[in-house]
Design a binder for these strands. Structure first.
Lengths: 243, 243
DNA sequence: TGATATCATTGAGAATCATCAGTTTTCTGA
DNA sequence: TCAGAAAACTGATGATTCTCAATGATATCA
């Protein structure tokens, strides 16, 4: 199912500059939210800021790098690739969340591949720096625990909502998830590719397409802009939960 | 799918006694593994030990209790129940793992119900006691992080292995998961009820039964004892991964 | 802007799975 | 040890979904 996703891996990454966490205007939303300004005076290794183009790979599963990434803007998909090349999307990660946290507790390589869905703005934080700050500021542990718990909740939601039911129900659930996830201020959201959606709910691409097309015809889902969509949440909920 | 699991909730719970963590012979496997004996001299609230009979509920989703549980022996299923009564098993938890960790970071109630699969031997640890020990011994945070990361890995494995593929592939994957999970020393494992298996992989009970029966006929799965089974791992892997 | 590649949609037939109903097996308690 | 209940298994049928193939729409780039 869904083989050879991303045949042409575009590695379009732009270095934006050294991060100055003490002057970061969104720090209270980010990985170092609990730390005082003074914490960043003597970092073991510096934090850098990057912009990843849509489709570019942030890290690949199994790679032995030593960085975690705090997402400032954009959406990242965590992908598991099986031996036969089958891809499965395990989680979507948005602004304020961190990826690569497995490195903080002994894992020697990333557990998934992380790929930018749209343009992603992120901070690249060396693991030794995190460990240094953890030992100096135990409150950072609290934040890591919070992050992991949030991601565990997401994974559970994924299992419950996207892992059972008919194809139509799963697509409806997925749209509800996307709506809640992307819609920060407005209620528009980016509709993912059929391939990505299929890789999330474990059904064929054509089936996803059929369901999406049907929802569009029924005006449950409508395009507002380029590839921005809005949906009728109430109607989707009814579909998702019907017996 | 799989409605009215556990119509007769047996709440057979036996108090074994106050836990003396400083003298616990398996502490290095348990939640307080990193702490010194002296840590337990002045606990805010005591830790108690219980035995739960198979099928009994350890806690129910949404309950506002203030305890986490460290599993000493036996298997626990974490169950999500939808509004319509549909049950979905989100995770299996075994010895050395802890449940209810969501309470440690602000959640005011359990996210799932926890039900004993076989006889479960556990320690009931009050949240204030954990918080006390966390502030005195920051290394306990490390352990919580480890626990959460382990459970996140389990959840991801669940999504990848049990969420896609044909019914036969999913059942094969599930048997492999059970084999790896239950088989501590020997290679026998408890075969769950068809209802539980269906609730894990999101297919109909009858379909699970058909697949299991087929595996038995093909001698890929054989009963060794009461309801202990052994499986041909290589053969199951082949089935699980075939195109 | 037009050519081309990629993605989304649709159709049709085959394969898979859910459902309902009935049978067999296993478990449980008197 | 036996009767009754629960769980597991099986068969038949219809609905759903996958697969293969073709067409339409959209994006990209020279």
């Amino acid at each position: 199912m869904n083989k050879e996703l991303d045949k042409t891996v575009c590695t379009n990454v732009e270095w934006v500059g050294r991060a100055h966490c003490d002057r970061c205007h969104i720090r209270r939303l980010m990985f170092f939210s609990e730390l005082p300004d003074s914490a960043f005076e003597h970092l073991l290794q510096p934090v850098d800021q990057f912009i990843h183009a849509a489709g570019s790979t942030i890290f690949e599963a199994g790679t032995r790098k030593k960085f975690i990434y705090s997402i400032r803007r954009g959406m990242v998909k965590l992908v598991h690739t099986a031996e036969d090349g089958t891809n499965r999307i395990v989680r979507l990660i948005g602004p304020g969340s961190a990826i690569g946290l497995e490195l903080l507790d002994g894992a020697d390589s990333y557990h998934h591949s992380a790929i930018a869905i749209n343009q992603v703005d992120l901070c690249k934080i060396p693991v030794p720096t995190v460990e240094q700050l953890e030992s100096e500021y135990p409150e950072l542990y609290q934040h890591v625990v919070q992050q992991l718990q949030d991601q565990l909740d997401l994974a559970d939601q994924w299992i419950v909502a996207l892992g059972a039911g008919t194809a139509k129900q799963r697509v409806a659930q997925l749209l509800l998830v996307l709506d809640k996830f992307f819609a920060e201020n407005n209620d528009e959201f980016i509709l993912l590719s059929r391939e990505d959606m299929a890789a999330m709910i474990g059904i064929a691409v054509e089936t996803v397409s059929r369901m999406i097309a049907e929802f569009k015809r029924q005006k449950i889902l409508y395009k507002t802009d380029n590839n921005l969509y809005t949906c009728n949440t109430a109607e989707l909920l009814k579909i998702a939960q019907q017996d």
